[in-house]
Design a protein around this nucleic acid. Structure first.
Lengths: 140, 140
DNA sequence: GTCAGTGCAAAGCTTTTGCAGCGCG
DNA sequence: CGCGCTGCAAAAGCTTTGCACTGAC
């Protein structure tokens, strides 16, 4: 069972119709390992010979986010990125020099966050951890 | 010793000149308890009868960030915020419903992050933790 | 056949940049 | 007095919105 199947099914059940643009965006996201921005998704799809309107990419991402199917990732460079809400929870490392974004995960960190969430008084829906610095390549 | 004194001193030592706009922005930030966006700073300064060009606010924030005097805070709403790089390290809780931003801090969380940083292979300069959800008021 | 989905283009925002002139050092 | 800081205005991105049309159901 792929994420794309879950996504299509969830949208169908919420009364949305399936169009070509949405299918292309969902298929594209399913093949990615980390977060992607709307412009990036649009450019890649056009390059792959699957022309999709930029507006449709934004609208699809908005819809996916509203249904909890993608998670918003903001690394602070003015571009909003999204990634499939997989089960393999992770966070991000950003290189301030070259802009590269990598992922990592850590159980101890998750436990600490859960504890904070419990005491916060908020009904929390998501959390993000962002580490910024210079990657090995840029340091050299 | 206020943060504003540190800021002025650090900028002076890095060969920058002091102008009215910069002084107003620094004084403003010194009186804030949490992060502020550039437009917000500009509007507040104008309202306070200290007219400052919006471009100067951006340029001052950029300069302060380059010198490590302010920390960038991005809560994912398309506005980049900044707050003085105080010694009291903290992170942020964002209410997705009303947009309110609060702060919190937790030693266990910091320890976990430090451990991840150590193993990352990056030369890390900063980290951020963002918790998103609904605050007590919006849940009611 | 209806109406949501799509694409294009225009508008809206925040942020950045160009440039003339003021003023700190 | 020179050069950096400032402010205005224009430009540059990313994102959103309006509108006519296509196509899913």
């Amino acid at each position: 069972m792929h994420w794309s199947d879950d996504a299509h099914e969830a949208l169908r059940q919420s009364g949305k119709r399936a169009g070509a643009a949405r299918s292309h965006v969902i298929a594209y996201l399913d093949g990615q390992t980390c977060c992607r921005g709307a412009q990036e998704i649009h450019a890649d799809l056009v390059a792959a010979g699957r022309p999709v309107g930029l507006a449709s990419v934004y609208r699809t991402l908005e819809m996916l986010e509203a249904n909890g199917l993608v998670q918003r990732v903001d690394v602070g460079d003015g571009v909003v990125r999204f990634e499939p809400a997989h089960h393999d929870h992770h966070h991000h490392l950003v290189c301030d020099d070259c802009g590269k974004v990598e992922q990592f995960s850590d159980g101890e960190l998750e436990r600490a966050i859960e504890e904070v969430e419990r005491r916060s008084g908020y009904a929390l829906k998501a959390h993000d951890v962002l580490l910024r610095g210079s990657c090995a390549a840029c340091r050299g």
